Simulated assay, not measured.
Amino acid sequence: MFVVTPTEEEQLKEAAKDRGLLLEVRQSPIGDYCDFGTVGVSRLHLIKIDEGMLRHRGSAAQAIRWMDWSGARGVIAVGMAFGVDRSTQRHGDVLVSTHLLPYDPRTIKSNNEIPLSEYPKVQALPASRGLLGILDRESGRVSERAFTVHRDALLSGAAKIHSRTFRAHLLTALGSRGKPIIGGEMEGAGLLGAAEQAAWLVVKGIVDFADEERDDEFKKVRDVACRNASGLVLDAFLNDQVERSR
Rank of each mutant, 00 (worst) to 15 (best):
M1C: 09
F2V: 13
V3D: 10
E8K: 07
E10R: 06
G20W: 03
L22D: 06
L23S: 13
R26Q: 13
G37A: 07
V41C: 06
D50W: 00
E51M: 13
G52P: 15
H56S: 14
S59H: 03
A63H: 01
A63W: 01
W66G: 09
D68A: 15
W69T: 01
G71W: 07
A72C: 09
R73S: 14
I76S: 11
A77T: 04
G79V: 04
A81G: 03
F82I: 13
G83N: 07
D85W: 03
R86I: 11
Q89K: 01
G92K: 05
D93F: 03
Y103P: 10
D104I: 06
P115W: 09
Q123A: 15
A124N: 08
A124Y: 00
L125M: 15
S128P: 15
G130R: 14
L135P: 10
R137T: 01
R137W: 02
R145Y: 04
T148R: 00
H150E: 13
H150L: 08
H150K: 01
A153N: 05
L154Q: 06
T165K: 10
A168F: 02
H169F: 08
T172M: 08
G175L: 14
R177D: 11
K179A: 11
P180N: 09
I182L: 13
G183T: 04
E185A: 13
G188V: 02
A189D: 05
G190V: 02
G190K: 00
L192V: 01
G193T: 04
A198W: 06
A198D: 11
A199W: 09
V202W: 00
G205S: 11
I206A: 08
V207F: 03
V207L: 10
E212M: 15
D215V: 06
D216C: 09
K219F: 14
K220G: 08
R222H: 02
V224A: 08
L232M: 10
L234F: 04
D235R: 03
D240L: 07
D240R: 00
D240W: 06
S245V: 08
R246I: 12
